[in-house]
Measured scan of single mutants.
Amino acid sequence: MTSCHIAEEHIQKVAIFGGTHGNELTGVFLVKHWLENGAEIQRTGLEVKPFITNPRAVKKCTRYIDCDLNRIFDLENLGKKMSEDLPYEVRRAQEINHLFGPKDSEDSYDIIFDLHNTTSNMGCTLILEDSRNNFLIQMFHYIKTSLAPLPCYVYLIEHPSLKYATTRSIAKYPVGIEVGPQPQGVLRADILDQMRKMIKHALDFIHHFNEGKEFPPCAIEVYKIIEKVDYPRDENGEIAAIIHPNLQDQDWKPLHPGDPMFLTLDGKTIPLGGDCTVYPVFVNEAAYYEKKEAFAKTTKLTLNAKSIRCCLH
């Protein structure tokens, strides 16, 4: 018999989150649709729960009410004593943790798909938090293969000092899905179709896995975050240069030392320094102006996964 890495157990509980950011409308629209008619997301033997994560922000069509829901799922915020004085999103995070967690427990949901849009030209993107997770690498390989020839990129946010504390991190297997470009507060049919297909293929993978299909060893190309880059700023902290036209919409493309990065209003080009080629992502993302992030630098690498098969009882 072929030796293989056996994944822990079959997958039982899956959640699909929309509206973690209330103005990213593809996930909101799909989740609302699936709450009314969820036939397309159901798979035999699998509990799939669509869920609106930040209903107040969705109602106002804004990213958040008090603070970013997708950055506060750490033990400090989840452990705060519940009171009306807490920011709305912290209270909501505790409610979500109660419903789908608790985080880092045996009772937490197996998989959470968190649906997002970006204003950046990132196409279909899967966000991975753990480079050693054979199950998710296999799932992402399946999704990428199923979507081809449509490109699907994998963004690895594993980093020693950049801690995200994402909404989906309460699950055993957290999956971020990011599709763009799409303006905030807008629905685009092409973007919706791409996100819908990503979810379909992900659920198909889980179904095949649960039925005992063995997935042979595989490898995927990923883009691992190195650092986030702020806009150049003046002495008052105001933005002093904008994304250069040569960099705009060039997510995932190589940016070499000396290539144009920013452009000042008086026409001066600010190039990339250093001696390493990087791959920019979230270029000129609207939501990241407040976070002082013009783009993120990534490096390209390959992740390998062992063969996996479900432990059938």
Rank of each mutant, 00 (worst) to 15 (best):
L99C: 11
P245Q: 00
Y289A: 15
I6T: 15
P271S: 11
F113N: 00
H5G: 14
W252V: 03
K228Q: 09
T119K: 05
N97A: 11
C152P: 03
M261A: 11
N37R: 07
D85Q: 13
G22H: 08
D266G: 08
Q42S: 11
C61L: 12
N284Q: 04
S83V: 13
V28Q: 15
V28R: 10
E285G: 09
T166F: 08
S146L: 09
N246T: 11
N23W: 00
P217M: 05
L128W: 03
G237W: 00
L255W: 01
S83C: 12
A93C: 11
L263I: 10
A240S: 14
G258V: 06
D110Y: 03
M122F: 03
R196I: 04
I199R: 04
H201Q: 01
D266T: 09
P216R: 05
T145G: 06
F215M: 04
R196H: 04
I127S: 01
G45V: 00
Y142V: 03
G45S: 11
G101N: 08
C218I: 07
K268A: 09
R91C: 14
E221F: 06
F51N: 03
K306T: 13
H33P: 02
T299R: 12
E158M: 02
P149S: 02
P271Y: 11
R71D: 13
W34C: 03
D234H: 08
Y279K: 03
R309I: 07
H159D: 15
N23D: 14
G101H: 07
I111L: 09
R71L: 10
G22M: 09
F51V: 10
L75C: 13
N133R: 04
M195C: 10
K297Y: 07
K200E: 09
D130C: 01
D107T: 12
E95T: 12
G123E: 01
H33L: 06
L162Y: 15
Y109V: 08
M122W: 00
N121T: 05
H98I: 12
D130Y: 04
N77D: 11
H98R: 14
S169E: 06
A296R: 11
I177F: 11
T299Q: 14
H256A: 10
D204E: 00
R63E: 07
A15Y: 02
G22V: 08
K297Q: 06
I112Q: 01
K292N: 11
I72C: 15
L187A: 09
F100N: 03
Y153F: 11
H208Y: 13
K81Y: 12
E84M: 13
R71A: 14
N54K: 02
F135Q: 04
D266A: 08
C311L: 13
P160T: 12
R91F: 12
H208D: 15
L192M: 13
Y223C: 00
H141L: 02
G180T: 06
S131H: 09
S108L: 08
G45P: 01
V154C: 08
K172D: 01
D110A: 00
V154L: 00
N210M: 06
P245F: 03
A39S: 13
I226W: 08
I170G: 05
I270A: 01
E95P: 04
P149K: 00
F209D: 05
L46I: 12
C4H: 15
I191S: 01
N134I: 06
M195D: 03
N77K: 12
K197N: 12
Y279I: 02
I191W: 05
E285A: 13
C152I: 15
L312H: 15
D66Q: 09
I111V: 15
T299C: 12
K228I: 10
F282I: 02
F140W: 04
Q42C: 10
L203Q: 02
N97K: 11
D230G: 09
H256K: 12
Q248N: 01
Y142W: 07
P50C: 08
G18R: 04
N77M: 12
R63V: 03
K213W: 12
E227A: 07
Q194T: 08
I270Q: 03
G176S: 12
K60H: 13
V186R: 03
I6P: 15
P280Q: 04
K224V: 02
L69C: 04
L69G: 06
H5E: 15
R132K: 14
A296N: 08
E227P: 06
H10K: 15
H116L: 07
K81W: 12
V90H: 10
E95H: 12
A165T: 13
H116M: 09
G237L: 00
Q182A: 15
N284Y: 03
S169W: 06
K49I: 10
D66S: 09
P216N: 06
V222R: 01
C152F: 04
T166L: 08
L35A: 11
K213A: 11
D110I: 05
T145Q: 15
A15D: 06
N134G: 06
H159G: 13
W252K: 02
P232E: 00
F100T: 05
P245L: 03
C61V: 13
S83N: 13
K291G: 12
E36L: 08
L128Q: 03
V229M: 08
F17A: 07
V186S: 11
R168K: 12
I65D: 08
K291I: 04
D190F: 04
E238G: 09
G79I: 11
P280W: 03
L150E: 13
H33V: 00
Q12Y: 03
E285M: 04
I41Y: 02
P87D: 11
H5C: 14
P257D: 02
A287E: 12
L301A: 08
V186M: 11
D234S: 09
F29G: 08
N77V: 12
Y223T: 06
K81G: 14
A296P: 05
L75E: 14
T166P: 12
G19S: 00
H98E: 14
N304W: 15
K197I: 10
V58R: 03
N77S: 13
K268C: 08
F215C: 00
E84Y: 12
G123F: 04
V90G: 09
T118W: 00
P245C: 01
T298L: 00
W252D: 02
T20L: 05
I308N: 04
E36G: 09
L265H: 13
D85F: 12
E89R: 02
C276V: 14
R196E: 03
L187W: 00
C67F: 10
M198D: 04
I157T: 15
D230H: 13
V175A: 01
K80A: 14
S3W: 07
